[in-house]
Measured scan of single mutants.
Amino acid sequence: SELMNSSKLIRMLEEDGWRLVRVTGSAHHFKHPKKPGLVTVPHPKKDLPIGTVKSIQKSAGL
């Protein structure tokens, strides 16, 4: 199965306009000026399962 580095996923979010608002432990929480909701990324993780990545991307509207 495909894995993604959390840094790469965070870069994709930031390029889309998401900004880090809070860190709780290894959970990084992002908000967007125009899009609704809060997106949480486990970080640092070298090997996020593709299912997790897809669900984060979906929440972020990517």
Rank of each mutant, 00 (worst) to 15 (best):
Leu38His: 07
Val41Leu: 04
Thr40Lys: 13
Val53His: 03
Lys8Thr: 15
Val53Ile: 10
Glu2Lys: 06
Lys31Glu: 13
Arg22Ser: 12
Asn5Ile: 13
Leu62Asn: 03
Ile10His: 02
Leu62Asp: 02
Thr24Ile: 09
Ala60Val: 03
Met4Glu: 05
Val23Ile: 14
Asp47Phe: 14
Ser59Phe: 08
Val53Ser: 04
Val39Arg: 01
Ser7Tyr: 15
Arg19Phe: 15
Lys31His: 12
Lys8Ile: 14
His28Lys: 05
Leu38Thr: 12
Lys46Gly: 09
Ile50Met: 11
Ile50Arg: 09
Ile56Thr: 02
Lys35Asp: 01
Ile50Asn: 10
Leu62Ile: 10
Ser7Cys: 09
Thr24Val: 09
Val53Arg: 03
Trp18Ser: 00
Lys54Glu: 14
Leu3Gln: 14
Met12His: 06
Lys34Glu: 10
Thr24Pro: 01
Pro44Leu: 04
His29Thr: 11
His32Pro: 00
Leu62Ser: 03
Arg22Glu: 11
Leu9Asp: 01
Val21Glu: 07
Pro49Glu: 07
Thr52Asp: 06
Thr52Ala: 07
Leu20Pro: 06
Lys58Asp: 14
Ile50Trp: 14
Lys34Gly: 07
Pro49Val: 04
Thr24Arg: 08
Arg11Gln: 13
Ala60Tyr: 01
Ser59Glu: 12
Lys34Arg: 13
Val53Phe: 04
Lys35Ser: 03
Gly37Ala: 06
Arg22Lys: 15
Val21Ile: 11
Ser55Cys: 10
Val39Tyr: 01
Ser7Met: 09
Thr24Glu: 11
Glu14Gly: 06
Thr24Leu: 10
Gly25Lys: 13
Ser26Gln: 14
Val39Pro: 02
Leu3Pro: 15
Ile10Arg: 02
Lys45Pro: 04
Ser1Asn: 14
His29Asn: 08
Val39Ala: 04
Pro33Arg: 07
Thr40Ser: 14
Met12Glu: 09
Leu3Ser: 12
Leu62Tyr: 03
Ala60Trp: 01
Gly25Cys: 07
Lys46Pro: 13
Phe30Lys: 00
His43Asp: 04
Arg19Ala: 10
Ile56Tyr: 01
Asp16Val: 06
Lys58Gly: 06
Ile56Gln: 01
His32Gln: 01
Val41Glu: 00
Gly61Ile: 03
Leu9Ser: 01
Ser26Phe: 12
Ile56Ser: 01
Pro42Met: 05
Ala60Met: 05
Gly61Ser: 06
Lys46Trp: 11
Leu62Gln: 03
Ile10Val: 05
Glu15Val: 07
His28Tyr: 07
Lys31Ile: 08
Arg11Cys: 11
His28Met: 06
Lys34Ile: 12
Ser7His: 15
Ala60Asp: 01
Val23Gln: 11
Met12Pro: 00
Pro42Arg: 04
Met4Arg: 12
Thr52Asn: 04
Ser59Pro: 02
Lys31Gln: 13
Asp47Val: 14
Ser1Trp: 05
Gly37His: 05
Gly37Glu: 05
Gly61Pro: 01
Gly17Tyr: 02
Thr52Lys: 07
Val41Gln: 00
Ser6Val: 03
His29Ala: 11
Leu13Thr: 00
His43Met: 03
Leu13Ser: 00
Lys58Ile: 14
Gln57Phe: 15
Gly51Gln: 13
Ser7Asn: 09
Val23Asp: 07
Ser26Gly: 15
Ile10Met: 05
His29Gly: 07
Ile10Asn: 02
Pro36Met: 08
Ser26His: 10
Ser6Cys: 02
Ser6Glu: 02
Arg19Ser: 09
Asp47Pro: 06
Asp16Asn: 07
Met12Phe: 07
Met4Lys: 08
Ser55Arg: 15
Gly25Met: 12
Ser26Ile: 15
Met4Asn: 09
Lys8Arg: 13
Ser26Arg: 14
Gln57Met: 15
Lys8Asn: 15
Phe30Val: 00
Pro33Phe: 10
Ser6Tyr: 04
His43Pro: 02
His28Phe: 06
Ser26Pro: 08
His43Arg: 03
Phe30Trp: 02
Lys35Gln: 03
Arg22Pro: 01
Val39Lys: 01
Arg19Val: 13
Leu13Trp: 01
Asn5Asp: 15
Glu15Pro: 00
Leu38Trp: 11
Lys34Gln: 12
His43Glu: 03
His43Cys: 03
Lys8Ala: 14
Lys46Asp: 15
Met4Val: 08
Pro36Val: 08
Ser7Ile: 09
Gly61Trp: 04
Arg19Gly: 07
Gly51Tyr: 09
Pro42Asn: 05
Thr24Met: 10
Arg11His: 13
His28Gln: 08
Asn5Cys: 12
Phe30Ile: 00
Gly51Leu: 09
Arg22Asn: 08
His32Cys: 01
His32Ser: 03
Ile10Pro: 00
Thr40Met: 12
Lys31Asn: 13
Pro49Ile: 03
His29Cys: 08
Pro44Tyr: 04
Met4Phe: 11
Lys35Phe: 03
Gly25Arg: 15
Lys54Arg: 14
Lys58Arg: 10
Leu9Thr: 02
Trp18Lys: 00
Leu3Met: 11
Ser59Cys: 09
Ser1Gln: 15
Trp18Leu: 00
His43Asn: 03
Leu48Ala: 02
Leu38Cys: 09
Val53Gln: 05
Glu14Ser: 07
Val21Asp: 07
Glu15Cys: 10
Thr40Pro: 04
Lys46Thr: 11
Phe30Cys: 01
Gly51Ile: 08
Ala27Asn: 13
Lys46Glu: 15
Ser1His: 13
Thr40Trp: 15
Pro36Arg: 09
Leu13Lys: 00
Met12Ile: 14
Glu2Ile: 11
Val53Asn: 02
Ala27Phe: 15
Asn5Ser: 15
His28Arg: 07
Val53Ala: 04
Lys35Val: 03
His43Thr: 03
Lys58Thr: 11
Gln57Pro: 01
Val21Gln: 06
Pro42Gly: 04
Met4Ile: 07
Trp18Ala: 00
Thr52Ser: 05
His28Thr: 05
Trp18Pro: 00
Met4His: 09
Arg11Gly: 11
Ser26Asp: 13
Val39Thr: 04
Gly51Glu: 15
Ser1Asp: 14
Phe30Gln: 00
Pro49Lys: 06
His29Lys: 10
Asn5Phe: 07
Leu13Glu: 00
Val53Trp: 07
Pro42Cys: 04
Lys34Asp: 09
Pro36Glu: 10
Leu3Thr: 15
Pro33Asp: 11
Met12Lys: 06
Leu9Gln: 02
Val21Ser: 07
Ser7Gly: 12
Pro33Tyr: 09
Lys54Ile: 15
Lys54Trp: 06
Gln57Leu: 15
Phe30Asp: 00
Glu15Thr: 09
Val39Trp: 01
Thr24Lys: 08
Lys45Gly: 06
Ser1Tyr: 04
Lys46Ile: 11
Pro49Arg: 06
Val39Phe: 01
Pro42Glu: 06
Ser26Trp: 12
Asp16Pro: 00
Gly25Phe: 14
His43Tyr: 04
His32Arg: 01
Ile10Thr: 02
